Lab assay of single mutants.
Amino acid sequence: SEEKKKAKERLERLGASSELARELLDRANGNAEKAERLLRKLL
């Protein structure tokens, strides 16, 4: 979806690899905010 694509791009801008961004979104069930929080914990 367009929303998921935007979320993935945002995670990548924050420093996630394409693969990591995809994994985070999967774990967050597509929830962009939750995926971002997970990423911030990792960085």
Rank of each mutant, 00 (worst) to 15 (best):
L20K: 03
S18P: 15
E33A: 14
K8D: 03
R22W: 13
L20G: 01
K41D: 14
A35C: 00
R37P: 00
A7Y: 07
R22H: 11
R10K: 09
L24N: 00
L42G: 04
S17D: 08
E36Y: 07
L20I: 05
L43I: 09
K4L: 15
A16T: 02
A35E: 01
K8N: 08
E2C: 08
E3F: 09
R27Y: 11
R40C: 09
R40N: 09
N31H: 06
D26C: 09
E2K: 08
E3P: 08
A32L: 15
E12V: 11
E12F: 04
K8V: 15
L20E: 04
K4I: 14
E33V: 11
L25E: 01
L11P: 01
L25A: 05
R22C: 15
R22Q: 15
L38E: 11
E3V: 10
S1V: 10
L25Q: 01
G30N: 08
L14N: 03
D26H: 12
R13C: 13
G15D: 01
E12D: 01
E33S: 09
N29C: 11
E36M: 10
E23Q: 12
K34M: 15
N31T: 02
A21M: 05
A28E: 04
K34I: 15
E33L: 12
L25R: 02
L25I: 07
L20P: 00
N29I: 03
R10T: 06
E3I: 10
E3N: 12
K6A: 13
N29W: 07
L24Q: 01
E19K: 09
N29T: 03
S17Y: 04
L38Y: 07
R22L: 15
R13H: 10
R37I: 13
R37M: 14
L14V: 03
K8A: 13
R22N: 14
L39E: 00
S1E: 14
G30W: 14
R10E: 05
L20R: 03
D26W: 13
A7D: 08
A16Y: 02
L38C: 10
K4V: 14
K34R: 12
A32W: 13
E19H: 09
R40H: 13
K8S: 13
L14E: 02
K41V: 13
